[in-house]
Design a protein around this nucleic acid. Structure first.
Lengths: 199, 199
DNA sequence: CCTATCTTGGAATGGCCGTTCCAAGTTCTC
DNA sequence: GAGAACTTGGAACGGCCATTCCAAGATAGG
C-alpha cells in the first residue's frame, strides 16, 4: 500500500550509532535522537520500537560494520604472524584516530556500562568477545603450523595474552599512549609472546 | 554548636561507593541512594552536596581505599620481578572474586562511561592511570638493576605492555577467562616480556 | 477520484529526575 | 532552661524522561 518512509532507515541508524557510541545509552535521550536525526518521535518508534531496541540495533550495526569485518579477516588469513601483526597495526590505526580516539570502542564502553543490564545486549557483547579470542587462536594456530613460533610456545596461551592486549588497546583513556608508542609497545609484546629472537 | 550528624558519613560513603560502582552514575538515582543508605535527601545534600559531588567523593574513596594502596605497595617494593608477580597475583585474585567479578573495576567503568564528562572526574581517572604506569616502571627499573631482565629488554617498554595487560584484567566481561586461566595467561605474559628462559 | 493503509507532525501522558524549601526536632552554649 | 545553630523528615518544585495518541498528510490500488 503506502508503506513508503520519508527517510532512509540505514542512514538514520548510522547517525544513531554515533550518538550512542559517544554518549552511551543512559545519558542519551530520545530527544537527542530526534534532534540528531531530524526525525519525528512517531517515525522512530514505528520503525525501531523503543529506546532499548534502538540501542540494540545501533550496537549490532556497529559490530557488523566495524568490529566483525576486522576479526573475520584475521580469522580467515592463514599467514600466521604477519596476519596478526597486520591486525594489531590496523587496530591501533583505527583506535588512535577519529571517533575512536575520543569515544573509545562502543563495545568496550557497553561492556563497562549499564547497557549491560539488557541480557540481549550482553549476549551480543559476549559473542563479540568470543570472536576476538577465536580469531586470535586461529591465527596463532596457523603461525605454529608454519613454524613461526619459538619452540615451547603454547599458541592458545599466547592468544589469550594477545586478546587481553587487544582489549587494552580498546580502552578509552585520554592519558593513554599515543599511536607511535602503542605501536612499539605492541610490537614488543607480540615479539615476546611469540618468542621472536631477542636483541 | 550542634553540628552532630545522626549518621556516620564514612559508612554512608561506603554504601554509596557500592551503588555507583555497580550501576554507574547515570543509572543511579538519588532515590536509590536514599533507599540504600536509609538517609534523608536533606542530609545527603547537606553533607555531600549534589549528585555529581557525591559520585566524585565515592570514586575518590574507591581509589584511595582499593586501587592506590596496591599501586603504592608495588611502587615501594624494590624486589623487582617478585613484586610484579605478586602485584598481578593480587590483581587477579581480587578481580575474580566478590564485587569485582560482577561489577568490574569502578575506575575502568568510569573511564568507559559518561561519568567522564566531568573534568574533575576525568582528572582523577587520568591520575590513577598514570599511577599504574609509574608503579610498573619503577618495579621494572628495580628488576633491571638487579639483573632480573634478559639482556636487551627495555624496562619501560615492558612496563607499557604490563600496564596494558593490567587494564585488560580490569575489564568487566562475563565471557572472560576464569581466575586459573588468567593466572597462567599472565604468568606467560610476564615471562615473555621480561625475557625469562623458555621451555 | 475514492478509499484503505501507512507515515508523519506535534501535543499530551504519567512518572521519575535532581534539587530546594521549611517546619519540626535535636544538640550544644551560656 | 532559654535560645542559637544545626540536622532531619517529608512534601513540593519545575523539568525532562520514554512512550502513546490522534489528527493530518501522503501513497497506493481499484
Amino acid at each position: 500500500m503506502a508503506d513508503v518512509k520519508h527517510f532512509d532507515p540505514d542512514a538514520t541508524l548510522d547517525t544513531v550509532v554515533r550518538l550512542f557510541w559517544r554518549q552511551g545509552v543512559a545519558t542519551t535521550g530520545i530527544q537527542d535522537v530526534v534532534d540528531a536525526t531530524g526525525l519525528n518521535r512517531s517515525s522512530l518508534y514505528a520503525t525501531f520500537g523503543g529506546k532499548q531496541e534502538l540501542y540494540r540495533a545501533a550496537l549490532e550495526r556497529y559490530v557488523d560494520s566495524r568490529s566483525r569485518p576486522v576479526l573475520d579477516r584475521l580469522e580467515g588469513d592463514g599467514r600466521g604472524l604477519p596476519a596478526i601483526a597486520e591486525f594489531f597495526a590496523e587496530l591501533i590505526e583505527t583506535r588512535c584516530t577519529g571517533e575512536y580516539a575520543q569515544w573509545g570502542c562502543m563495545v568496550s564502553n557497553a561492556h563497562a556500562g549499564a547497557e549491560n543490564g539488557d541480557p540481549r545486549v550482553r549476549a551480543l557483547l559476549d559473542r563479540q568477545h568470543q570472536r576476538l579470542r577465536d580469531a586470535l587462536r586461529a591465527a596463532l594456530a596457523s603461525a605454529q603450523r608454519q613454524h613461526q613460533l619459538a619452540d615451547g610456545t603454547d599458541p592458545d596461551a599466547a592468544a589469550e595474552v594477545l586478546a587481553l592486549l587487544a582489549h587494552g588497546v580498546n580502552l578509552r583513556s585520554r592519558a593513554g599512549a599515543d599511536a607511535q608508542q602503542l605501536r612499539t609497545t605492541l610490537a614488543a609484546a607480540l615479539a615476546a609472546v611469540t618468542g621472536a629472537p631477542r636483541a
